[in-house]
């Protein structure tokens, strides 16, 4: 008699007990978001108005779109510091096209294609030449924005067509802006790709051990290249939104967005060392940053002081779990 072992069911993913969900990073972010929301509604009578809450979302949707793709990139162990420069370059190209008499569809296409092209350039340098992405993208950051400065100098492009304004200023339904709708749709897509597809699994695997991945038949370089292209693409889309919202292009547009997008990603619980993170966390972090800046803005706190809160939030949120773990280990050891 042959002894066949009973077929064992191996689940795709481990069951998450409720307790882990409660003590997860995302739960911490939700608590922080509710706290900030509550404090804001007490601090300012104008906060709990549908239209001001709608205005609030403009604070983070553009950076949030970039942060979604950046999250995947950082999970895979790379980083892209050139995203804001890509926004500037794409916006400049759109401005040139307007000068040449291009219509709205052409403008959108240019923004997206330039973004994609810049991302592919980063990706090629990192994957084909095996260069560290942080240095490559510091270089391309200067290069892309530098090209925008060469083209524009101290000038600005204006005169975008009226139909182009919809992307950054239009509303899909009631108080829901096109930007917010796009951000939420993109978030769902990125969530699906990262957490429900084999591609997403590979992204995590690459972040944990690229060499083992290579030996397991994962095309590490190709996936990294795709991620750089995605980040460029999202920057291009963000560029369309920002340009449409502001209605003008200066070479200094979106200055400092790269650090804010990365702050969102890290605040969202993505490990800067790669290999761990979730889209839900990034989306929550985007909302939190929007809430903080908007709430403080209603209280007439200057933008530069808000940045202190964002910086403190970043460090405290990262440090608290570490201190907590230290303390609990000390107690039970």
């Amino acid at each position: 008699m042959t002894d066949t072992p009973a077929p064992r069911h191996i689940p795709d993913r481990l069951d998450k007990p409720l307790a882990t969900a409660i003590f997860s990073w995302e739960a911490l972010l939700v608590v922080i978001a509710i706290l900030i929301f509550a404090v804001n509604s007490f601090a300012s009578p104008y906060f709990l108005d549908p239209w001001s809450l709608s205005d609030l979302t403009f604070n983070f949707t553009e950076k949030g779109l970039i942060a979604l793709a950046m999250a995947l990139l950082i999970i895979s162990g790379e980083i892209d510091l050139s995203v804001a420069a890509i926004v500037a370059l794409a916006s400049t190209m759109m401005g040139m096209a307007v000068q040449a008499g291009a219509g709205t569809p052409v403008l959108v296409a240019i923004g997206i294609v330039v973004g994609l092209g810049c991302g592919a350039f980063n990706g090629l340098l990192v994957t084909r030449l095996g260069l560290p992405s942080i240095v490559v993208t510091i270089g391309t950051m200067s290069l892309f924005r530098g090209i925008a400065f060469i083209i524009l100098g101290d000038q600005a492009y204006k005169g975008y067509p009226e139909s182009f304004a919809f992307f950054g200023q239009g509303y899909v339904w009631w108080v829901f802006s096109f930007e917010l709708a796009l951000f939420l749709v993109a978030a769902v897509i990125y969530w699906f790709v990262l957490h429900r597809t084999s591609f997403g699994r590979r992204v995590f695997a690459i972040g944990n051990n690229p060499v083992a991945c290579q030996f397991s038949g994962v095309r590490v370089d190709r996936i990294k290249f795709i991620l750089f292209c995605l980040t460029g693409l999202m920057s291009g889309i963000a560029s369309v939104l920002i340009t449409s919202r502001l209605g003008s292009t200066r070479p200094s547009i979106a200055q400092g967005y790269e650090l804010e997008a990365i702050t969102m990603v890290v605040l969202g619980g993505v490990s800067i060392l790669g290999g761990a993170g979730s889209i839900l966390g990034v989306v929550l972090a985007a909302f939190i940053m929007g809430l903080v800046t908007f709430g403080l803005g209603l209280l007439n706190v200057p933008g530069i002081v808000m940045s202190i809160f964002i910086g403190l939030l970043l460090i405290i949120v990262i440090a608290l779990p570490i201190i907590w773990r230290r303390l609990s280990v000390g107690r039970f050891a």
Partner: peptide
Amino acid sequence: RLNIPSIVVTLGTLTIYRGATFV
């Protein structure tokens, strides 16, 4: 002491120190 990656720490203090200048 907290083993936070330096890029995260200094990204935070980058904004904090400049904000502190304003304060």
